[in-house]
Design a protein around this nucleic acid. Structure first.
Lengths: 251, 251
DNA sequence: ACAAAAGTGTTCGCGCTACACCCATGC
DNA sequence: GCATGGGTGTAGCGCGAACACTTTTGT
């Protein structure tokens, strides 16, 4: 019997390529004083899908895992070294998602803080998620799933740290959250929820003076610079128990 | 400039293989009247890692995506056709996770209902998650991640449908949840939470008589047989808004 | 009548939304 | 002083945990 992961396989499996694709988001101020959630894309110069816009990424090398590969490709190909968060979204493996060789992609969600504003290669640009250009292959689906993941995690993790600049006012943070979520956010509740969860701390210093008057805003920063689940939403769990105990079941 | 997913690549990339591995869980009654959460494993007969226990799975074929592949391999290799739920866990791609050829695995969480009890090939067996034998390669990590995913989703989705038999009493369902979660569960709250969420419905019929007396239990069933998020836990969201609106940000 | 098991009602606490109110600054 | 925007207090609500109580069966 030869079931399982033994390395015996039909010859045509040699043709399967493994690539990594990252949907990198950032919040960028717009000219009209608003903000937009943008994703980083580059325009294909050659067939197939010439002229369409692709996610940055490329082939997995033999000495790296997919996470390392995503970081490397973002640094090499679009000069992004300050990626504040990166996580797997899923595998995209429809047999003919690429027209030539069979290629399986691991999709990633990447985030870049608002104040990073890296220099980009000429054929690369930020595009508003709400108004995407024509995208290559299945990259539109990857962007969509990454966006949904971001929206979900904004509410039950501290993932906002990866979009916010080092220091910010609550009003600025509200704009970032509202832009990424696609709906308005109450700055009152945002402030206190993140404070209660211990994710936010005032720096003590005061923010930029508003020329038109008004109380100057206190500057804040995130206390933790890596992903942390802040709302375990664990139903059915006894109140006193902490982590999910791995002990044998009752009775 | 050749960034992105163009099919130009160094020759050594041809050696990357793509496999699919499924951690299939089920809740099984034990002799002492309890229950245990078990995972399906098969014992390797050959090197490498001969004698150790592996997850079922195998190589991705050219005409299928990874989800189809997982379903196919479970049906072909361990005769599991009644898999009630299957979802991707993530990509496992450490460069030397397999000693011979470079192999990238897509890990899956699979679930089988308590009343299925399929016939298994001789070298295949259910093992309690709390007392695993020595596992091959990185399969232990895959099992662990799948288990955690299951525990999390039990609280905010209807994923219990995939572990429960077609009809059951609340007490039986309590045992299933407690076994999968690893801690006790209050049958009162379990019952009403699932009722309020519209996931559970009484069949009207009454359950098996208890020989020692007591009120006979009402039989129930899940109303929906596919994964549904029942607790959106979306903080910062205005109360009236429903789904995450994709409209442009405020201001 | 009594025991046993299932199911219901009630209380409590907590976290989040909404909104009115207070504070600090520029003119 | 007054307008403007930032920050705080507070009421209300919905959900889930805990637990006492009622209902239905067997002996």
């Amino acid at each position: 019997m030869t079931h399982g992961s033994s390395p015996s396989f039909p010859g045509h499996l040699q043709d399967t390529l493994v690539e990594v694709l990252a949907a990198v988001f950032t919040v960028r101020p717009t000219k009209d004083g608003g903000a937009s959630l943008d994703v980083l894309l580059w325009q294909r110069g050659q067939q197939p899908d010439a002229g369409k816009w692709s996610l940055p990424g490329g082939m997995l090398l033999s000495a790296e895992d997919v996470d390392d590969s995503a970081r490397r490709q973002l640094a090499e190909k679009v000069d992004l070294t300050r990626v504040s968060h990166l996580e797997q979204i899923g595998v995209f493996s429809a047999p003919h998602r690429m027209p030539d060789a069979r290629t399986v992609a691991t999709g990633f969600l990447g985030l870049v803080p608002l104040d990073a504003d890296p220099s980009l290669p000429p054929d690369t640009a930020w595009h508003p998620v709400g108004a995407l250009p024509s995208t290559a292959f299945d990259h539109g689906r990857i962007i969509d799933q990454a966006h949904r993941r971001l929206q979900a995690k904004l509410s039950y993790t501290n993932i906002g740290f990866a979009l916010a600049p080092a220091e910010f006012t609550v009003a600025e943070l509200r704009r970032i959250y509202a832009t990424a979520l696609g709906h308005d956010v109450d700055p009152t509740n945002l402030h206190r929820i993140l404070l209660r969860r211990g994710m936010l701390a005032p720096t003590g210093t005061t923010g930029p003076r508003n020329p038109v008057g008004g109380r100057p805003a206190a500057l804040h920063r995130f206390t933790i610079a890596e992903l942390r689940v802040t709302d375990p939403f664990a139903a059915f769990r006894p109140r006193d128990a902490e982590g999910p105990t791995r002990q044998p079941p009752p009775r």
